[in-house]
C-alpha cells in the first residue's frame, strides 16, 4: 500500500520559485500560463496489512506533523492499494 502526500503553499503565500519557473517556461515560448506554484510530493510505502482508514490516518498525521508546515502549507493525502 502506498500513501501519496501532496504539499502545496497556501494561497497567498508568495512562491518565488514558482514565479521563476513561470518566467522560464514563458521564455521558452509557452503561452497562456496564468500562474505556476511549486509544491512537494511524497510517496510513502506502508504495511499492506493496514486498513485503508488506518493508512490514511497515519499518513495524514505525518503530513501534518512533519511533511508540511501548517503556517505556510496545505496538504492532501491519497491512499493507493
Amino acid at each position: 500500500m502506498k500513501a501519496k502526500v501532496y504539499v502545496t503553499l497556501k494561497p497567498g503565500v508568495l512562491d518565488p520559485q514558482g514565479k521563476a519557473i513561470q518566467h522560464s517556461v514563458e521564455l521558452l515560448g509557452y503561452g497562456g500560463i496564468a500562474d505556476v506554484r511549486q509544491g512537494k510530493y511524497f510517496e510513502i510505502a506502508l504495511d499492506g496489512a493496514l486498513q485503508e482508514s488506518e493508512a490514511r490516518e497515519t499518513a495524514t498525521r505525518m503530513a501534518r506533523e512533519v511533511l508540511s508546515n501548517p503556517v505556510i502549507e496545505d496538504f492532501r493525502v491519497e491512499i493507493e492499494r
Binding site: 503565500v13 520559485q17 508546515n69
Partner: peptide, 17 residues
C-alpha cells in the same frame, strides 16, 4: 525555532531566490 513553534511565522525562500 519557527518550525518548532517557539516563534510564530515561517521563513521561506528569498524573494529573488
Amino acid at each position: 525555532l519557527a518550525e518548532a513553534g517557539l516563534l510564530p511565522g515561517a521563513l521561506i525562500r528569498n524573494r529573488d531566490l
